[in-house]
């Protein structure tokens, strides 16, 4: 979690120095979800993510240097600098991709689980989406397919309460995604996403079921401490300072430190270690060249 926190803070600063192009969606405040879910998976399990996916990638084992180089759009990036912040994949780690169209990675998870079934493997595929993705129709098409075909999919909703500026409560009918999932016959739990141990525990329960062919949903209540992207301040326009500060009081790193009984000295040491790793990643990314036009022309279709 300290690595994700430091990684995204450093990426954000690089963005503010105009070293990064495009935009950046930081998951600062939501690290407990990424780490808790990943902790419950085997290396051979697969993961799909969304536009706010740096934390998921790091938690699944993507090398921070190569991830940072990808954010910098450099040739040594994990996707050769062609995907960027919102389209990261590292197949060797089982991180099959973060995709930028809200909800569009969800049905891929059903296919990945179908492929596992065909190969007679008991690996599961976890797919993340936010409270914004909860109102995409394809989520329910995918839940239905996973349920009728009894596939090992774990749908993980990171409910950070806002789809950009729109409060989830304002645009989501009924009790929310947990009860919707139950209507499809999925096992469904709701947990405190700021508590990494609670997330990991619930994920272990659901992953075990998914391996046996019972698809599941986990809803994690969480909060992004920063704005949606750089153009959006942490508070002011649609969130009050009080609300943001209240959630910052439930920082997942602090919650874990407390639960694990870490003293201040140990926390400082872990943070410094993460900082050093991220510093190395930034230096690696800076030193990497941009992809050449020849490299950019590759991997379109067939032999080109």
């Amino acid at each position: 979690m300290a690595l994700i926190r430091n990684f995204e803070e450093a990426a954000y600063r690089a963005y503010e120095r105009n070293e990064l192009e495009g935009t950046i969606h930081a998951s600062i405040g939501q690290e407990g979800v990424a780490v808790g879910v990943a902790a419950a998976l085997r290396d051979s399990d697969k993961m799909l993510s969304h536009h706010r996916g740096h934390g998921h990638a790091l938690a699944k084992g993507v090398n921070p240097k190569r991830l940072m180089a990808e954010l910098f759009g450099r040739a040594d990036g994990v996707c050769g600098g062609k995907g960027g912040s919102m389209h990261v994949a590292d197949v060797k780690c089982g991180f099959l991709g973060s995709l930028a169209v809200v909800g569009s990675s969800i049905p891929l998870a059903v296919g990945v689980a179908l492929a596992a079934r065909r190969a007679q493997e008991d690996t599961v595929c976890v797919v993340f989406f936010g409270d914004g993705g909860v109102n995409q129709g394809v989520l329910y098409e995918a839940m239905n397919l996973a349920a009728i075909w009894k596939l090992g999919v774990v749908f993980v909703c990171e409910n950070n309460a806002y789809a950009i500026t729109t409060p989830a409560k304002k645009v989501t009918a009924g009790e929310g995604v947990q009860t919707r999932a139950q209507a499809f016959g999925l096992s469904a739990l709701r947990v405190d996403g700021q508590d990494v141990e609670e997330v990991a525990g619930a994920t272990r329960t659901l992953v075990a079921e998914a391996r046996a062919g019972q698809p599941a949903l986990l809803e994690c209540l969480t909060y992004r401490f920063l704005g949606h992207s750089r153009s959006d301040p942490p508070h002011g326009r649609y969130r009050t300072r009080e609300e943001v500060e209240r959630w910052q009081g439930r920082d997942p790193l602090v919650v874990l430190a407390h639960e694990a009984g870490l003293d201040a000295e140990e926390c400082v040491r872990l943070d410094a270690q993460a900082q050093a790793e991220v510093h190395e990643a930034i230096e690696f990314a800076r030193a990497s060249p941009r992809p050449t036009a020849e490299e950019l022309a590759k991997d379109v279709w067939g032999d080109v």
């Binding site: 050769g80 995907g83 994949a89 991997d299 279709w301």
Partner: peptide, 8 residues
């Protein structure tokens, strides 16, 4: 395939 730098 393109976005993944040829991994997928």
């Amino acid at each position: 395939r393109y976005m993944s730098g040829g991994q997928l």
